[in-house]
Computed example of a mutant assay.
Amino acid sequence: MKIAFSPCPNDTFIFHGWVHNKIPGAAQLDVTYADIDKTNGWAADSDSYDMLKISCAALPWVLSDYALLPCGGALGRGCGPLILTAKGSAAVQDPTALSGKRVAVPSERSTAYLLFRLWVAQQVPNGVGEIVILPFHEIMPAVRDGKVDAGLVIHEARFTYPSYGLEQVTDLGKWWEDDTGLPIPLGAIVARRDLDLQAIANWTKASVVQAWAHPEETQEYVLAHAQEMNPEVAQAHINLYVNDFSLDLGKDGYAAIEALLNRAADEGLVPKLPKEAFHPFY
């Protein structure tokens, strides 16, 4: 099976067991490691992959061909995207200072960007200026070096942004949780609808369980692919993004995804969810 997921610690941790043939009966994986912006595009515009890790925000464009698996994704609380700017920026005290500014984001079809647009509509009445798409690991250096005025960051940037001399404008995850009471729906695992979806879901769950049972076995693989090589940062990333929702979305997980995408559709930001969007798992 051809699969594409990010080199981030949560993805490599989750899929370590399956990639390394530790899941009995599971199909052999042919892995491509790619940034979320690329996997979002591949899911929408290509049939080259059997499984992909994508943003929850990209689901409306892919659910006719791919099914959302109830496991392997990234949802949670206290783990949302951050808007960062240089120290001393007026935007730290007054978000309206972002009006007309250049902002770097990791993908136009990411949950982070969707949350950002919903937040801007509420907090920056005149809107921001130019949106610049950058790989997520290039965003903080771009803000630090003055190439953009602010950056929307994800993943381990939550733990490392002070080292770049940056300050937080807002935590979009906290904003979302305060507004809805629901977890933040970040990443999703999808598989082609013409495959044995139940088997794939079972193998994915088994890989999560394997990683939790033998975390020491995953470390070399995780660190070999991580953008942040510090083992403590990688472990903090895993602790934050690999949780009960990674094993099973459950009622709250599906409700969070539905709430995000329905709210975004009402704002005209994404297509409306198709009928029975989460079939056959929900």
Rank of each mutant, 00 (worst) to 15 (best):
F136H: 15
G146C: 05
I139S: 08
T160V: 15
E130H: 09
L118P: 01
A201D: 05
P183D: 05
I184V: 15
G151F: 02
D145Q: 15
N202R: 15
A199S: 13
G129M: 12
P185H: 13
K101I: 13
W119N: 10
L186P: 04
V120G: 04
P185K: 13
Y161T: 10
A104I: 09
D194H: 15
L197G: 01
D196M: 08
D178C: 01
D178H: 02
F159H: 12
G187R: 00
W203I: 00
D171Q: 07
V169Y: 01
I189A: 02
V153K: 07
S107P: 03
G100Y: 15
G173K: 06
Y161K: 08
L166E: 07
P106I: 14
G151K: 07
A157E: 06
P125D: 04
H137P: 09
N202P: 02
V190N: 06
Y164V: 13
V148E: 09
F136M: 14
T96Y: 03
L195S: 11
G165D: 10
L172Y: 02
G151D: 04
Q168F: 00
H137G: 04
K174I: 06
K174Y: 00
D178N: 11
E108G: 03
S99H: 12
L152N: 03
I139A: 11
V143S: 07
M140C: 15
G173H: 07
D179Y: 00
A188D: 08
E177Y: 02
Y113P: 01
V124L: 05
L182F: 07
A150V: 11
D171M: 01
V169I: 06
P141I: 14
K147P: 02
G165M: 08
Q198T: 10
V132P: 03
L98R: 09
D196L: 08
V120W: 03
Q123P: 04
L172T: 05
S163Y: 08
Q168N: 07
N126E: 15
A97G: 06
D171F: 05
V190P: 08
E156G: 12
I133H: 06
D178M: 01
R144A: 14
M140Y: 03
A191Y: 03
K101H: 09
V148Y: 09
S110K: 04
R109C: 05
N126A: 15
S163E: 15
D196R: 09
A188S: 14
W176C: 05
H155K: 12
G100T: 15
V153M: 05
A142K: 10
P162V: 12
K147R: 13
I189Y: 10
L186Q: 06
P141M: 10
T160S: 13
Y113A: 10
P183W: 00
H155G: 11
A157H: 14
A157M: 04
L118C: 03
A97K: 11
L114E: 11
K147C: 00
R109Y: 02
D179L: 08
V132Q: 10
V120S: 05
L98P: 06
L186V: 12
P141K: 14
H137S: 12
T204P: 00
P125G: 07
F159N: 10
E156R: 07
W176P: 05
L197W: 04
D196Q: 05
